[in-house]
Amino acid sequence: MNPLITVSNLKVYFPVYGGLLRRVVDQVKAVDEVSFTVGKGQTVGLVGESGSGKSTIGKSIVQLVDISGGEIEYDGKKISTLHGKDFLPYRKRIQMIFQDPYNSLNPRMTVEQIIGEPLEIHFKQMSKPQRRVRIEELLELVGLKKEHIDRYPHEFSGGQRQRIGIARALAVEPEFIICDEPVSALDVSVQAQIVNLLQDLQQKLGLTYLFISHDLAVVEHLCDYVLVLNEGKIVEHGDPEQIYQSPQHPYTRKLLDAVPQI
């Protein structure tokens, strides 16, 4: 399978300032020499506790944080050195879904404005009525209703808001979606709905996912390949069945033991 994205020796260090002159006295190695690939149409799970660096990896791919070293290749082209205008086309091809559906939607914008904003940037030729039709299509794609287009975020439940977030990511017809804990703020019953929606969309649109989560049960269900991250390093990787049946690293075992079982 052709890798869509290849991350090699990725490093993200954050400076620690200290002393009277606020000089850099130390570094936090949030991501330390991480390498992995995601094949086209695959779902790769990135698992770890908070602070393990999993979200930082997701953010560094879309350049929401600066990387300190290593390379990111997308579809055979090195994207980690691109900036500004050169990176813009990749912002269309790579999208992100965030954890908290309450904080990731602007409360002063209507659903039309929220989903329309990426369209204004990446589909400049689209007229306003065309855009409205496209937004209505997207709402139906994620299981919402056309009539919801003029509403504000506070009028929706948590699960519905997450659907709006997904519609916004899908608006620009991306190939690759980074899902940063998309279901951990939701009720278990709603979580199941959103996970199913993500699976349906993947089949329908041929999407590739990087799925970041601390919930191993969800990851096992959804992912083709799993990377276990601890303190910025990948400590174990493999097929979900293999990892769950015979975890090699003590940290993986600790994570597995923590999953509540009925």
């Binding site: 919930d215 049960a217 979900p240 769950y244 009925i262």
Partner: peptide, 9 residues
Amino acid sequence: CIPQLGQKK
């Protein structure tokens, strides 16, 4: 509706 480890559906 709770996903369970080792019981992939």
